[in-house]
Design a protein around this nucleic acid. Sequence first.
RNA 1: UAACCUGUGGUGUAAUGGUAACACUCAAGAUUUUGAUUCUUGUAUUAUAGGUUCGAAUCCUAUCAGGUUAUCCA
Length: 668
Amino acid sequence: MSEETKSLNFIEHIIEEDLANGLPKDKLRFRFPPEPNGYLHIGHTKAIGISFGLGEKYNAPVNLRFDDTNPAKEEQEYVDAIKRDIEWLGYKWENELYSSDYFQKLYDWALQMIKDGKAYVDSQSSEAMAEQKGTPTQVGVAGPYRNRSVEENLDLFQRMKAGEFPAGTHVLRAKIDMEDPNMLMRDPIMYRILYAHHHRTGDEWCIYPMYDWTHGESDYIEQISHSLCSLEFKPHRKLYDWFKEHVYEYSKDKLPLPPKQHEFARLNLSYTIMSKRKLLRLVEEGLVSGWDDPRMPTISGLRRRGYTPNSIRKFIEKVGVAKRENVIDVSLLEFCIREDLNKTANRVMAVLNPIKVVITNYPEGKEEWLDAENNQEDESAGYRKVPFSREIYIEKEDFKEEAGSKFFRLKLGGEVRLKNAYIIKAEHVVKAENGDIEEIHCTYTEDTEKKVKGTLHWVSIKHAITAEIREYDRLFSDEAPDSHADKDFMEFINPNSLNIKTGYLEPSLSEAKVGEQFQFQRLGYFNVDNDSTAEKLVFNKTVGLRDSWAKQKPKSQNNQSQQNKSQQKRPPLSVIQQFGKKYTNLPEEKRLKVKAEIQDLAKDVSYDDLEPLFGTATKKAGTRTVVMIALKVLLKNGLERNDAINQFISKAIEDKNELLVAEATDIF
RNA sequence: UAACCUGUGGUGUAAUGGUAACACUCAAGAUUUUGAUUCUUGUAUUAUAGGUUCGAAUCCUAUCAGGUUAUCCA
């Protein structure tokens, strides 16, 4: 029910308006139209989420339509993968459809267009046509075949279909306007000859319709009410509408609803690439193990990495829908998966960088099976037993011989709690000749009520099982790897995006099944990879836990430089101007604070920069006031008065705003 | 330098002429047998300049910035 109070995005506004203007609700129909030439990635999820989400919201059908008009690139493998991914995300399509189902209909309409003089066969080379097309700043010119007779066009087009011509010799073009400022309107190609085997129609056709001719008409045939796509199709809209208006004239009796296209900004994720072509390159050049490599932004990659459908849908919901370019921070995706897994994943203990701890006052050979809560966020998750013994592993970085009071973990002479077990105290260390610590000798107490600051996870060495642990880092070291005109995105590949190690896990994990998800306590969320076998467990690290301790350590270099950057970014005067906008509305206490800040900033402002602001509109009293404050500082620092200054001040004294008058009088 | 689109905290999204809000990030604190979770608090925003209006993020004009468009791809 909280849905009702949620604000609408611009597409929902459009739909609401259409409904208000008389579109019956049962005419609402959407579609998701992938080309089966690659795997779906997180960017597609946005488009999927929008169209299928709208379907769910309005209880309207959503078609899954494969835009399969280019047999050279498309394969059944991709159709299967796309269906699997959409299903996995939890969406249900009304009909599974293919643009290739409409080839005959499209062909019939094309014949009609030719008869109406709206299309013609061109027989030039693609180079010649490109030349005639002009450029964005220069209009195109008509080619020599533009005015062929209807009979000739009809004859040629039918013979194109019959396979009488080699590929590339003729095309069918819409006859629109070679001078249109929108280049897509300069007689776009509708059909080309292609002798390729189509994954559905086989060798039935040797002419294939182009995207613009196919896509909109497929929407129309399916009676899609709102055809939603990403921003780069905006210029296509004019052509979409042109085709639509013509076929509508031919078929309005049977197909009464002309669809409308609307465009939204597609999703970009920081530190990743979204282009299918580029993702394919990563696969083909072996930089990743496949389309479902856990580092890939593909849906299959995210699935294997341990992302849940829930978390991805939540992410898309949070990202929103609008028309401006955007780059979403990966931290939002990480937040969504943590939020989901925090509620559902059972907690277990695993040590990834082990160091041996010997509990000297615990009897040799003794073992205890202690109770451990599976998930404190979920009471129904229950308890399990974990074995404890004299020798355990803890993480290397959980121990320091000496450390300050901010280090809550184990140090010599210090006490720490072992999760689900006892409290131990580090007595001394055993070192190898090279100085490396080999063992930490501790004593334990059974008084677990005692208050200690730190709690560590651990595993009993005798009982531990081993597993391969795959830890991932971002695939690219650059925030926007494919946005550099002068550099190939491959230059930004992070060589350390995969780190494989052996982990020591509590024995309950020997039962873990492929796909099962856990929280390795204090480390992160992990799932069992497909590569796991009965002999060898393999885990993927889905995402780490938030770690405010890790953040503290590199503070000195990291944070400061970041802060400096943001401070340097804006010149002092523009900061002052910003203050000016709200200055007159601030509560007094805050205003004084701001004023002091302005006075401080004004020291770095030159008169030449300030003077233009004397001309600020009369009604913008706030800006004039802060300029006055800044001016005062400049005068105090030795600036000579001139006519412009005097005029500015005397005009201010006559103002109706008291703050401005006060500042001006003060200076006067 | 043609046409079209877009400019709201660091990031993303609301507010549809009437108190600029929500989420993530970041920071501080409380709780905690995970330095997690949870809770509280905080920093920070309408690209610029004019105009219309009692009142502008919203409408108008200009400027600036970014993006898109020239495959027989989709």
